[in-house]
Simulated assay, not measured.
Amino acid sequence: MKAFLATLTVVAAQLAAAHYTLPDLIANGTTAADWVYVRTTQNHYSNAPITDVNSTEFRCYELDMNATPGQTSIATVEAGSTIGFKADNDFYHPGYFSAYMSRASPAANSPEAGTGQTWFKIWEDPPVFENGALVFPSESMNEITFTIPKSLPSGQYLVRGEQIALHVASSVGGAQFYIGCAQLNVVNGGDGAPGPLVSIPGVYTGYEPGILINIYDLPANYPGYTSPGPAVWRG
């Protein structure tokens, strides 16, 4: 029995090591400590992904959807600056990366922020189809960075980093989502009109060809990877 329990412990540790969270905001040239500006997620210990794209928890995967926002600080950043997320592990799984933002009302640290049709995509890093196979962003990296559009109006926002891991995505519900939401106050912005706007959850059905896919057995006439969700707004 002891040997069996020890084996289970090792397996659980290996699974956690293969997964990750996105606890650290990269902004203003520095990487913040864990969960200072990023809302603590339910998987902050287990590192397990969320797979239900229709769950209300899919928005930011907070530990407590009511309490966590108010317990998280708000980072002040400039429009046009580079921000991002650092993971607590390497991105072991091949997948698609993206970042969304939402104007936060009444504030970035309120539970109501991001609950409507307010989200827009500002960045993506999809796999490239070459020589009959998908080539994914490096699995040895542990951070993603992107630029806040310079014309984004000043104000408070949520920014949501996401990886859709596709290593077991050949059946519905197989894709694994790794999510982090940081709270921002954007200054020195412009007069842009972000869009198209989507709701999260609601942005995906789970049946998109970029989510429901067998990356190891692509069809002969495969046209290349199709990014799920809206087009990127670049300002």
Rank of each mutant, 00 (worst) to 15 (best):
A3F: 10
T7H: 06
L8I: 11
Y20G: 04
L22K: 00
D34L: 11
V36F: 08
T40S: 15
T41S: 15
Q42D: 15
Y45L: 15
A48D: 12
P49W: 03
I50F: 06
T51S: 15
V53P: 04
N54C: 06
R59D: 09
Y61W: 15
E62C: 13
L63T: 08
M65R: 13
T68C: 05
P69D: 02
G70F: 03
Q71T: 07
Q71C: 03
A75K: 04
V77G: 01
E78V: 02
A79C: 10
A79N: 03
G80N: 10
F85W: 09
D90K: 15
D90A: 14
H93L: 14
G95R: 03
M101S: 03
M101Q: 07
S102T: 06
R103H: 11
A104V: 04
A107K: 06
A108W: 01
S110I: 02
A113T: 07
G114M: 01
G116E: 08
Q117W: 02
Q117D: 12
W119G: 00
F120E: 02
E124N: 09
D125W: 12
D125Y: 13
P127M: 03
V128S: 13
V128D: 12
E130P: 00
V135M: 12
V135Q: 15
S138Y: 06
E139I: 14
P149W: 03
K150I: 08
S151A: 12
S151Y: 03
L152Y: 06
S154M: 09
G155T: 04
E162H: 03
H167Y: 08
H167S: 13
V168E: 15
V168T: 15
A169C: 07
A169I: 05
A169V: 08
V172M: 11
V172L: 15
V172A: 13
G173R: 08
F177N: 03
Y178P: 01
Y178M: 11
I179F: 12
C181T: 03
Q183M: 03
L184K: 02
V186F: 11
V187Y: 13
A193T: 15
G195Y: 00
P196K: 10
V198I: 11
S199Y: 05
I200G: 01
I200C: 11
Y204T: 09
T205F: 10
G206W: 02
I211A: 02
L212D: 01
D217W: 00
P219H: 03
A220N: 10
A220R: 02
N221Y: 09
P223D: 08
G224W: 07
G224F: 10
T226H: 10
S227H: 05
G229T: 04
A231N: 13
G235Q: 04
